Computed example of a mutant assay.
Amino acid sequence: MYNIQVFNSIAARGLAVLDEGGYQAGNVEAADAILLRSHNLHDTAIPPSVKAVARAGVGVNNIPVDELTEKGVVVFNTPGANANAVKELVLMSLIASSRNLFRALTWTNSLQGEGEAVPEQVESGKKYFIGTEVQGKRLGVIGVGAIGVLVANDAAALGMEVTAYDPFISVNTAWQLSREIQRAHTPEEVFQTCDYITMHVPLTDETRGMLDEHAFKAMKPGMKVLNFSRGELVHEGDLREAIEKEIVAGYITDFPNDNLLNMPNVIAIPHLGASTYESEVNCAVMAATQLKQFLETGNIRNSVNFPNVHMPMAGEKRLTVIHENIPNMVGQITGILAEEEINIADMMNRSKGPWAYTLVDLDEDIGREADLIGRVMAIKGVRAARVI
């Protein structure tokens, strides 16, 4: 029996994954794992029994990742589960902004109370909202992950010329990318040649403020920028200056703040990127499935703090060890197994930065699991160990 502490309202289909047997999900004691969406875990006491935390969403700002990593707690997110929802909102915003739809709707709503004069005013006023078509225009996609590849492919299907920049594109994504998509070797190539830019990169120390004065100066005048990734990717002071100089004709973002709401030519959407019923279900199912796989097999998929590891079960028992990525860790673990006269059926070790994860399948059952775990935990650098 595994106990799963659930915060927020998790889609029923996600919880149903845990109803398949051996789980108690809800407000539980001695939780083995935590499943949440937006709950602020920074302000929550996390019991030492917790082995994993899964967020039904991509961002993990509400989770104390560094603290949990030091304790050997695996943190999962659900990249790609909301990709279609975000893609549809990006393409809708791109077309709507090109046709001046947002400003036009605001103006139309201002005609309330004009009575029979409304049709005449509409016909005389629509000339102020003449837009442009996206067909034949050039779109630059910065970041070709789960969302970026969908945006790029569908924009090409709409008749746009699409240029993509991503120095870290995965093999899986490369296979999905349409052959019509052109490759940019630098961000400047996108800035200088495109009519629209949409960003789909994570927020890191390297990407924070990546659209700054230098980037805006390299852009074609009249650029429209779409940001449905993270607000901090754009330096807002430099953005204001770029708008005033008419370098940026429009900035469409899913991350409003008071500063942006006071800028001209900014369309601020209230963080609706993943706000669809389908996306919530996909995220919940994916998060619950990843927790279930980890608890039952030790395999890790889509962890933000530890390496992805998948190894089919090949023995009677499995030893899992989370530890620092330092020399002789595997040797010490296998040395203990040798001293205990336990034969190894299979083994895998993977690392991610300063951390590593080792799976060891054992040929036989273990009579003294607690003693074995105690010996492994005594190795300097080990953060967590368990036998499945």
Rank of each mutant, 00 (worst) to 15 (best):
N100V: 10
P312M: 09
E213W: 01
R368F: 05
P47Q: 02
G22S: 09
M286R: 09
A385T: 13
M263R: 01
L272N: 06
P187S: 00
G148K: 14
S124F: 07
F228N: 01
S178V: 12
I379P: 02
L261D: 03
L36V: 09
K217I: 01
Q176L: 15
N40I: 04
A45S: 11
D363N: 07
A370T: 05
L291R: 01
H39G: 00
L261C: 12
D238L: 14
I344P: 08
V86P: 00
I10S: 04
S351F: 12
A184N: 11
K126S: 03
E280I: 01
C194G: 00
T276G: 06
A242I: 09
R375M: 14
N153R: 09
T320M: 14
G381N: 07
H310N: 04
K71A: 13
T69V: 14
V285N: 01
D19N: 14
S93Y: 08
E114K: 13
A218P: 02
I344N: 08
D66C: 04
N305P: 04
T69L: 10
K127M: 07
A85G: 03
E339W: 08
G136V: 11
D212F: 01
G143E: 10
C194N: 00
T204S: 12
G315L: 15
A384F: 13
V234M: 10
G148I: 08
L111K: 14
G21H: 05
V321T: 08
F191V: 02
A96K: 13
I197L: 12
K51M: 15
V17D: 00
E364H: 00
E29M: 13
A370Q: 06
N308V: 12
Q121D: 05
G331E: 11
A146S: 14
E206A: 11
A174W: 02
I373G: 04
E133D: 15
G381C: 07
G72Q: 08
W107T: 05
F216M: 07
A146G: 05
M311F: 08
A12T: 09
T320I: 09
E246Y: 05
P270A: 03
L239A: 02
M92F: 14
